[in-house]
Amino acid sequence: MDWTTIFVTTVEAAIGLETVVYALAAIGINIQFGYTGLLNFGQAAFLGVAAYGLAVTVATFGLPFWLGIVIGLIATVILAFLLGIPTLQLRADYLAIVTIAAAEIVRLVFRSVAFKDVFGGSDGRQGFSDGFYALNPFPRGEYGIGPIGFNERVLWILVVGWILIVLACLLVYLLMKSPWGRVLKAIREDEDAVRSLGKSVFSYKMQSLVLGGVIGCLGGFVYALGNASVQPDVFGTELTFYAYTIVILGGAARVLGPVLGAAIFWVLLVFIGNTLSELVAAGYITFMTTTQVGPVRFMLVGLGLVLLLIFRPQGIFGDKREIAIDAR
């Protein structure tokens, strides 16, 4: 049993690239779902559109890095409007149906043969991150404490990613303490009541959808830059559902819920996966092989979530009193 490796990989997972990407995606969903009650099941598309906006601008058209970021952001906002305008006047379920379908359409367009020249088919795009790493202030080398460490490229993207998370959390904190946030929470409770009090529900829902999409799209940039490549299948529906899991795990409508949720989600996956692999390799577990560990760890995480929903339905940061109100 190599406990050091398990420990190191677990700690690295807690602050690693996946955690950053999913935390940003989940902060966006928390604004939409946690605070406003919008069921956006297409968060993957927002990340994908941003990542591809950047990758295609730089890799396909040879334009500068910053222009790629701007185009990614614009594409995200356009996507939010495209999804929101027809659905936000309707009942909540319509947004859910349209977003989940739109996310798949976006992914299939990215991997389609017809647009292979632009999006690169199922191989995606590479070689667009030089502009980002040219800005890296860390000299070449390994950084870390003891056995836990990252090279200068990973460190740079993680620093940028965590700064984005801090800024996003600060933004959510300020907004949700303000009258603006109060309107969002009221819409989640009952939009007709909000209408009867003279607020334009459609406008606030749209603002929430755009804001959540833009914060999520930062996760798309971080993913693309951290891996220095994008592939269409990364932005499948499971990305969205992991993000929802993370929001519920951390506690919906809590500022730090999604961040803590993302860290716990990935720590659990990595810890359980590596521990099981080690146990199988060392011969302590005989009824499964190392290749079966991958699916089994998801089963165990799923079991953990079920137990969480039974014993702590409000999530880790949630307020028990709020759940009690629903039970009335």
Binding site: P179, A186, R188, D190
Partner: peptide, 20 residues
């Protein structure tokens, strides 16, 4: 609006709020 406090419910009714 169940998960808002009574005071927040009241504040929501005010018109022309700059913070909105």
């Amino acid at each position: 609006l169940s998960k808002l406090t009574v005071m927040e419910n009241m504040r929501l009714g005010a018109q022309g709020q700059r913070g909105e």
